[in-house]
Design a protein around this nucleic acid. Structure first.
Lengths: 134, 134
DNA sequence: CAGTTCAGTTTACATGCGTAGTCCTCAGCA
DNA sequence: TGCTGAGGACTACGCATGTAAACTGAACTG
């Protein structure tokens, strides 16, 4: 909780980001300011949502403080207010807290037991561990 | 996915278990058949829920196929139909899929970066890794 | 045998979410 | 300058969820 993502202390929006909203965030995390039409174009492809749906999600995300709007001509450009890494961290912690008593090791053990770990994963984790040990 | 929890192939209930329902499941995972009153006694303490609330949750879990009922006198005893390990596994995978592209290593990296890993965690994970390598 | 009490079932209601239609306004074009 | 269209705002609606009250049926008790 010390080194934030560049911007000053990306405060969480308290309000949780829902599944559908996350899809919108992902698009904006991939490329920052975008208009509603842009977002819709990208998501429409993948999820088959109509324009109104995307607009609703954008509005809700703005209301939740997860997105900022910048007027650009007669429309808005949307920019994420929270970093993806922040969101991901929060969600990971939630899971670990809810299901593994706040300990990461059991999560890891679980993934291992369910063969969710590829060889690559294992190699990468070992590498990370080595760094942590330093 | 081979050695199940005693009962035959604990099929997932498809229906997702919600946050509040999870609290009920936890109580039943801790000690198996229990009456509604038992569950309520334990949860009432922790979450301050009234009896009707607990009953609703129990009924919903039964409807979802997550709990089984056994008549015992003039009441029911509730027993989990899905193993905690199964649920936990499913949820973990969901998170990894949703946020880390299905790869466990980035999750791990994230936890590490956010200092979510205690020394114990690290030691335990190293131990697990050693076993996986064997 | 009737009343009380306990336990499961039904109903309720506000909020959040997924999904979308409609309306209103402003800008640009003819 | 009036019309048209793009885009944001408001409204909608059904389902899940959190939370709980009311109803009902059966068992125990006096």
């Amino acid at each position: 909780m010390s080194a934030e993502q560049g911007s000053a202390a990306a405060e969480a929006p308290a309000e949780r980001i829902s599944e559908a909203e996350l899809a919108v965030m992902e698009v904006l995390w991939e490329e920052a300011p975008q208009s509603a039409a842009d977002v819709c174009a990208r998501i429409g492809k993948a999820r088959g949502w109509s324009m109104p749906t995307v607009k609703t999600l954008l509005a809700r995300l703005v209301a939740k403080g997860a997105l900022a709007t910048t007027p650009e001509g007669r429309r808005f450009l949307y920019t994420p207010l929270i970093a993806r890494s922040h969101y991901v961290g929060t969600e990971s912690r939630r899971l670990v807290d809810r299901l593994f008593g706040g300990r990461a090791a059991p999560l890891f053990a679980n993934l291992a037991a369910n063969e969710q770990l590829s060889d690559e994963d294992i190699a990468e984790i070992e590498r990370l561990l080595k760094e942590l040990r330093k």
